[in-house]
Amino acid sequence: MNTDSLGFIFLSSLLINNFVLSYFLGICPFLGVSGKLGRALKMGFAVTFVMLISSLSATLIHSLLVWLDALFLQLIAFILVIASVVQLVEMVIKKYSRALFESLGIFLPLITTNCAILGVALFQTAREYNLLQSLIFALGAGLGFTLALLIMAGLREQLGLAKVPNLIQGTALTLLVAGILSMSFMGFAGLGG
């Protein structure tokens, strides 16, 4: 059981324990993000949306497996069900809303194998969150991911203009910037008790 308050869970997954900057989940899209803010924002919202789906399915799967006493299937069930549900949602969106699909749907298949999505499912289970806590946790994690992505995209825009030594250019530079970002996010520790 876990009685952490909803506000605390949200703040904690949004800022204090930001998925990207303190758990290193979802690093690939973070490092690969281009300097385009709009695209980063869309990607972030798509991830948040999938995280909510993942969180909801994980809660259901976990209670089902506890009932069946088959917890050793948890990981397999999580990854297969989340992947299928996301695909299903993608199809539904494609059929009913062309506009939504164009702005959100194209990211969906990419996101399924993103470790942050599975991370949400695994963390909420380990922490014994109930349904509401899990959803808030997923929302915070998704928005935290969006925030980190946006900051990075903004920095990338500026970095494009900066003169840096050849050796650091590319991924190394992004990593250094991420390290400094992560350091500044450490300042949020202790928020909300």
Partner: peptide, 10 residues
Amino acid sequence: QWQGQGYQEL
């Protein structure tokens, strides 16, 4: 036993 959020992790 009881669990909750620590500085970084559970």
